[in-house]
């Protein structure tokens, strides 16, 4: 990106403010649906920051994967488990929040001091700029070939694992043979879940 220094600073300030505000909204807003949409805003702002950091390929990947896949997946999960319930109040919830906020603020101060006092070894090499795509491809197929292949195996495992975890439980064998006469799917109906849970408390 060939932007002037002032333009870069102004766009960084705008993007950083938007990202931090949306992230605070994700954590603090009571409605979880609004939180999910604000999370999409955080992802888009971070993609803009990647553009400022001369990484157009990763910015596009960020929008495709995070906004397009992960955020939609979270929205679907919210729709699937959206049960209107008021959580039972726990004792000392305010103390828990206060201690956590103190610990997180202390962590931020620690990280900030480290960042500011560390003498970074800035490189003077010319940045690759828009040729980053070619360089990433060369890395993937030369010195990062094994992690690249392992990532594909990991994605396959996650795919199969998610299907296995999220599908419905099947009935045991005895109930299955008893229910074959009325030709229903061998799947536990939704309204019988509570009964089955009473039978098997260890489930």
């Amino acid at each position: 990106m060939n932007l002037a220094e002032g333009v870069q600073i102004v766009s960084f300030i705008i993007l950083a403010a938007a990202v931090v505000a949306a992230a605070l909204g994700v954590v603090l807003i009571p409605s979880v649906v609004y939180a999910a949409f604000l999370l999409g805003g955080v992802f888009i702002g971070i993609a803009g920051l990647y553009l400022l950091l001369n990484a157009s390929f990763v910015a596009a990947a960020q929008i495709l994967i995070y906004v397009g896949a992960v955020n939609v997946l979270i929205l679907f999960a919210i729709m699937l488990v959206n049960k209107r319930e008021d959580f039972r109040p726990v004792k000392f919830a305010w103390a828990r929040r206060g201690v956590t906020a103190a610990v997180c603020g202390g962590l931020f101060l620690l990280l900030g001091t480290t960042i500011i006092t560390t003498p970074w070894a800035f490189s003077t090499a010319t940045p690759v700029g828009d040729d980053a795509v070619y360089l990433i491809g060369e890395h993937f197929f030369s010195d990062f070939l094994l992690p690249f292949e392992l990532a594909s195996v990991l994605l396959l495992m996650a795919l199969i694992g998610a299907i296995v975890l999220a599908r419905r439980d099947f009935l045991p064998e005895s109930a299955l043979t008893a229910s074959t006469e009325n030709l229903k799917l061998p799947e536990r109906p939704r309204e019988l879940v509570a009964v089955a849970k009473a039978d098997q408390p260890s489930n």
């Binding site: 979270i74 490189s123 990062f144 495992m157 996650a158 694992g161 299907i163 999220a166």
Partner: peptide
């Protein structure tokens, strides 16, 4: 800023994005 000629950080970020996608799928399941 520290490695603009080899951009290995971008490779790492792509791997982190991959693992995050897998983590989100399994976590929601």
């Amino acid at each position: 800023y520290l490695d603009p000629a080899m951009i290995k950080g971008q490779i790492f970020a792509v791997f982190v994005i991959t693992v995050a996608a897998a983590e989100a799928a399994v976590g929601l399941a």
